[in-house]
């Protein structure tokens, strides 16, 4: 076999870097959507590689639900300092205070859907024409149809039936004033690829991904962390378990799995043996079969 070929991780890396450079070249004011989760950390790492020795040219934008893991915020602030990058925060609490959105009611209330308004407001206020996200096509069935360059109309909405065809690696980011794009450089990565790459590159990630002791409550088939925002039901009981998180989001809806994986090697091995998707522990996706598609149409990440 000829030596002139890339292995799958190098090819995925090269593809993502190509996409990030296209974003930089085709848009005036692009940002990275940074949640503090592994996928947005990975995007940030790839952006660092894509533009080296220049500084990462994108500000990081965080949509803050106000229901955070303290570890995530600390991690965010550290990475901003290390990169010398600009941080833009869109606050869901402010959207609520300003009357732009109303807090959901009932026992399964979350701020998940409220983020959409905050995100779109922040995009508009900061004149952002491209928001780079860590979405992957393997995550969820509506995401399987996403483009690398995904158009949003001037209401921030996604029209999945009317997407621009994307052929070869020619990306069309042309848009009118007020419209924006979402770009997904790691579209073709799977959860396993992400972990293998994080392990290979030894990328720093929040401690929440590693197994640790935590107070949790069993709810909707996963361990929801106890926090000041959690309203307990009568039958629910707070217990201490050794868990880790497969995804990081709003603290009220991000479920953990019981695990002893406390190193990147052990996490990668554990993920390889997992029999459930990572979003299976996210109660936001369990509401209905098309929960993700419905939110994405409105402008969700």
């Amino acid at each position: 076999m000829s030596k002139y070929y890339l292995n799958y991780l190098d090819e995925l890396e090269s593809e993502a870097i190509f996409v990030l450079r296209e974003v930089w070249a085709q848009f005036e004011n692009p940002v990275i959507l940074f949640s503090g989760g592994k996928d947005s950390i990975l995007i940030t790492h790839l952006a660092k590689k894509a533009f080296y020795p220049a500084k990462i040219p994108f500000p990081l934008m965080h949509v803050d639900t106000g229901h955070n893991f303290p570890e995530t915020i600390q991690f965010r602030d550290d990475i901003i300092k290390e990169l010398g990058a600009q941080l833009i925060v869109g606050s869901v609490q402010e959207s609520i205070d300003e009357g732009r959105v109303a807090e959901e009611k009932g026992k399964n209330a979350t701020r998940n859907a409220l983020q959409i308004t905050t995100l779109l407001d922040a995009i508009e206020a900061n004149k952002i024409d491209c928001a780079i996200g860590g979405g992957r096509r393997d995550e969820e069935k509506a995401r399987a149809k996403e483009r690398f360059f995904s158009h949003r109309d001037d209401f921030g909405q996604w029209d999945p039936k009317n997407q621009r065809p994307e052929l070869w690696n020619i990306f069309n980011g042309k848009h009118f004033e007020g419209e924006h794009f979402r770009a997904f450089p790691i579209s073709n990565w799977t959860e396993m690829d992400v972990w293998n790459y994080i392990k290979r590159e030894n990328i720093a990630i929040p401690s929440l991904y590693f197994a640790h002791e935590r107070e949790v409550v069993w709810r909707q088939d996963s361990w929801i962390p106890n926090s000041e925002f959690l309203v307990l039901e009568d039958h629910e009981e707070v217990v201490t378990k050794k868990i880790r998180f497969r995804t990081l989001g709003d603290i009220t809806i991000t479920g953990g799995v019981e695990s002893d994986a406390d190193t990147l090697e052990k996490i990668a091995a554990e993920v390889a043996g997992m029999r459930n998707t990572e979003r299976g522990n996210r109660s936001d996706d369990k509401r209905s079969e098309s929960a993700m598609e419905d939110r994405k149409r409105q402008g969700y990440f």
Partner: peptide, 22 residues
């Protein structure tokens, strides 16, 4: 293999969907 709501309702694939396996 069918992702969007309309596709599930109609039982057809309309768009390109990407699937992954290793």
């Amino acid at each position: 293999t069918d992702g969007l709501r309309d596709e599930r309702e109609q039982g057809i694939t309309i768009d390109v969907a990407y699937r992954y396996f290793t």
